[in-house]
Nucleic acid binder design. Structure first.
Length: 466
RNA sequence: GGCGACCUGGCGAAAUGGGAACGCAUCGGUCUGCAAAACCGACAUGAGUGGGUUCGACUCCCACGGUCGCCUCCA
């Protein structure tokens, strides 16, 4: 595998190395389920799903784990506000999360563990840390002793002395310490028994427990949004490496940048952010995936109608070239186009070079568009041989599929309604009579039915507008 | 206050110590009855600003300006 990824831990690109079992283990922090996920939450889901897909298409074995955090303060609060049990709310939101991300058509991760299904492992891990004197019970809580873990701050590049501690836990020995276990508080309706009394896990411990259970200790990539670097991932390292000793957790720490939800209509404080389901409903899965893939995962990405519109136009250009290839199959020539063959090799090479260089999806996209132009140019020159047309189509769709955009290559449902076919025929009659006013009116009618009409050298064609 | 990131054409966005990709938009042209699609051509003599290193910098270094993220539960 020649893929290298930028690691937050070292600040440089590191080669992705499979584990001893030959599998590239990837753990990405998933959502806390207390509401529908928004378009920003979808970015890591898309990035890590496509990362796994790319590795597999390159012949690697990969295992992707994205957890679901279903125990959290926010869940208690949201459930209370809605007047339902927090377990009920979390279960409903977890189901909705699955449904919403399914809309993207990127498949499911190999495992999607929940905190509530990992309670034994979590409690055992905390007990282990207490045993090693890296953690201590206080009241009904258990805290991690930050000062006792030497590497603390390495991931986020901060110095303990620089930190401004917030004094929220009165029971802590040190304000920098963080909770591993929280004793049950008044009004918290979901809780678990533990050696320290009833309560629930702190925020970070569940990922340490789930990652180890699903992938073992030394897996390839651990990721999530860049806002999780501190404290979440810093604390994960402290917990996991503290419990096992030494530098033994994830190899590469991979973090995606945030979406910019600058549009005033989408302020978090107002609470009317764009839900993933709504965005997919409006623009379609391909456009949403293209929107993410056209920017590098470590760049901030503005969210706006204009950007989504650009992505849609890009998808349409690809659909157009695929249609042109399908058309070229009829009456194909008998000679290969040498320039097209060359462009195919170059595009494939450039695609992989860019992807292998820190998952450079924008450059990969550019390689695809270079190929698109080369195809259009070749078809402009003449009709290549059928075998070449099919090869080029297969290769193009293959590249798209590596970006999660294989859906663009699925042939559009060919069942044009009879109504449209009738209108088309009437229009052809009008055109033959040179009654262009009537012909244009009929074209408008076809358009109103959701079909796009294009006159080509071999006669008119209609497509379902996408 | 501390730590860190970023600043490339109208918009978005890459690569790179020595010709500034790609997508969208715009303007010409070809094709078409027209349109659409496609193709051809034009579109940053310049990369926030000012210095420095270098034969040569958008690319490395410094300063300033601006935008932004994190600093205990936000992907």
């Amino acid at each position: 595998m020649s893929l290298r990824l930028h690691s937050t831990l070292t600040g440089v690109d590191e080669p992705v190395v499979p584990g001893p079992d030959g599998v590239i283990g990837i753990y990405a922090c998933g959502p806390t389920v207390y509401s529908r996920i928004h378009i920003g939450n979808a970015r890591p889901f898309v990035v890590f799903s496509v990362l796994k897909r790319y590795l597999e298409r390159c012949g690697e074995r990969a295992r992707l784990v994205i957890n679901i955090t279903d125990v959290n303060d926010k869940i208690y609060d949201a459930a209370k506000a809605e007047g339902i049990g927090s377990t009920e709310l979390a279960e409903r939101c977890a189901r909705q999360y699955i449904e919403d991300t399914d809309l993207l058509g990127l498949g499911r991760p190999d495992a999607e563990p929940k905190v509530t299904d990992t309670m034994d492992e979590i409690i055992a891990l905390i007990a282990d840390l207490v045993e090693r004197n890296l953690a201590y019970p206080a009241g009904g809580d258990v805290y991690f002793r930050v000062a006792a873990f030497p590497g603390y701050g390495r991931l986020s590049g901060r110095n303990l002395l620089d930190m401004v501690p917030s004094d929220d836990g009165d029971l802590k020995d040190d304000p920098l310490d963080f909770a591993l276990w929280k004793g049950q508080k008044e009004g918290e309706d979901a809780f678990w028994e533990s050696p320290w009394g009833p309560g629930r896990p702190g925020w970070h411990i569940e990922c340490s427990a789930m990652a180890e259970r699903e992938l073992g200790m030394r897996f390839s990539v651990h990721g999530g949004g860049i806002d999780l670097v501190f404290p979440h991932h810093e604390n994960e390292i402290a917990q996991s490496e503290g419990a096992h000793g030494g530098d033994c957790f994830a190899h590469i720490w991979m973090h995606n940048e945030m979406l910019e939800l600058s549009d005033s209509k989408m302020s978090k404080s107002i609470g009317n952010i764009a839900l993933l389901a709504d965005v997919v409903d409006r623009w379609g899965a391909d456009t949403v995936i293209a929107y993410f893939m056209q920017s590098h995962y470590r760049s901030r990405l503005p969210f706006s109608d204009e950007r989504l519109g650009d992505a849609e136009a890009a998808c349409e250009r690809i659909r157009n070239v695929l249609r042109a290839l399908d058309r070229a199959l009829d009456g194909a020539g008998d000679a290969n186009d040498a320039e097209l063959a060359k462009a195919l090799v170059e595009s494939r090479q450039r695609f992989h070079d860019s992807m292998d260089d820190d998952f450079g999806t924008p450059g990969a996209f550019a390689a695809i568009f270079d190929l698109v132009r080369a195809i259009n140019q070749a078809l402009e020159r003449g009709r290549p041989a059928e075998g070449q047309v099919q090869e080029v189509r297969r290769e193009l769709v293959g590249l798209l599929d590596m970006l999660g955009l294989g859906g663009l290559g699925e042939s559009t449902p060919g069942d044009t309604p009879q109504e449209v076919l009738d209108l088309l025929e009437a229009r052809e009659t009008a055109r033959a009579d040179r009654d262009f006013a009537r012909a244009d009116a009929l074209r408008d009618e076809i358009s109103a039915l959701g079909f796009e009409l294009r006159d080509g050298p071999d006669g008119p064609e209609v497509y379902r507008a996408s």
